[in-house]
Design a protein around this nucleic acid. Sequence first.
DNA 1: CGGCCAGTTGAAGCGTGTCAACCGTAGTGG
DNA 2: CCACTACGGTTGACACGCTTCAACTGGCCG
Lengths: 260, 260
Amino acid sequence: MHSGLLRLQPLVRKIELASTLGDDDRDALRSLPFRYGHAVAGQQLVREGSQPTECCVILSGYAFRYKGTFGGKRQILSFHVAGDILDLQQLKLSVADHGVDALTPADIAWISHSDLDRLCRRSQSIADALWREALIDSSIFRAQLLNLGQRDARSRLAHLLCELAVRRESAQVGDGDEFDLPMTQEHLADATGLTVVHVNRMLRALSSDGVVTHEGRTLKVNSWKRLREIGGFDPAYLHMGPVEPVDRMPASNCGTSPSG
Amino acid sequence: MHSGLLRLQPLVRKIELASTLGDDDRDALRSLPFRYGHAVAGQQLVREGSQPTECCVILSGYAFRYKGTFGGKRQILSFHVAGDILDLQQLKLSVADHGVDALTPADIAWISHSDLDRLCRRSQSIADALWREALIDSSIFRAQLLNLGQRDARSRLAHLLCELAVRRESAQVGDGDEFDLPMTQEHLADATGLTVVHVNRMLRALSSDGVVTHEGRTLKVNSWKRLREIGGFDPAYLHMGPVEPVDRMPASNCGTSPSG
DNA sequence: CGGCCAGTTGAAGCGTGTCAACCGTAGTGG
DNA sequence: CCACTACGGTTGACACGCTTCAACTGGCCG
């Protein structure tokens, strides 16, 4: 049982994107007891159908949640970065309706439901903040529903890339217009409801249109404006507070972007 | 400001599907002050992008939630029946990331966020119950994501029909294998991410295969087993407590359930 | 009566899926 | 050092599920 003082800092930062915390709340969160774990890429963290007793906070690396079909297909529900707290829903529900896998090597803090629950009872503002996290989670799923149900392949991909950019930015991973895209095209396919082959084609299409540059596992966005337009991306659903509506994208920086 | 004693009963029943309440909690919920409203079919209840200060409980009738695309398309996120509490997410988030419309004429109870919030602070078990409702909501979206992303038209429809059947059953609307399908095929299309034309074809296919009988706005399920298979439906995601796994479908009724 | 809305059906086109190669890189073991 | 394998990415040809367009029906209501 660790209680490493600053290791839970990514969690605090994440929560403060959507909620305001007092000093005491911050301290309480940071000093939550947790079990530390390291996961290799592809490792299963939560099994669909299991009854976990701990929440899982990503300290570093990437993870994703998914649901399986009887026929062996897989829908990736969301990708997650450092600071994200997963399985918050299991705090109040017993069986996990979806699984969680590490996407890259990842450091994980496991926090027991009872500890978290106790903290919620002690601090109304933390309870509110966690509730809010869960609701934002839900909002992201709603946006994904719109994405899968109403947009074509090209738009779906663009939208997903926009979301990844914003979330990685807010987690302060990478910087600016160029960032790591740690997932394989198969992951992207499972997240967008497309086939690997078609994801590949659409990615290249975005490349050859000059919207993004994609080499190796790095993605560079040449025109946020066009990527947003193509994806129909409106960051409101992320509920990250006031975001300037236009032109620039990841909540912060982004110098000179050619807008053609 | 009504405080009509039994009018909020559908809400209590709904909540008790997933949580256990004490007598005092039940009473507290039932005596929540609310503003009564009647909506005609198609009437907008919550506008996407607005900042509501009240939650909306359906006392009778049907409603649905949706998100719109810049291009004018619409994705229906979920359908709702009597007892469902909508916009619970706005309790902790400020702007509504989706809209709500009445599907049929409906009776609505509007409960102010502050009243609800106050009640949550007074009763931990009610707070838990509402939190749980929100999480189940989220779980349903996840299931829809799997549906839209991984299944073909026929399966999507079958899955949606299964879900509607279970939820209407749990709300004690209609009975047995035959029930009202109050939505138009356009609604079904917007919910499944298909076109009206194709929904029509798939519905007829299900009919001519003998799985369902569909005349007017009534749907009769001839074989739950086949409908479940086609839709890949597993009711676990509804988190409605232990559900017998086989053969029969709508969760409850049938007074003689062994070991229930 | 006329008009509108939901449903129904057919024919044609296109967006994705499927199948099947092939490439480059990294890892592994002889 | 070289086979050998495994995996992610890339590309082409073809098949098919779904969309699109368009026409027609029946019911409801002003």
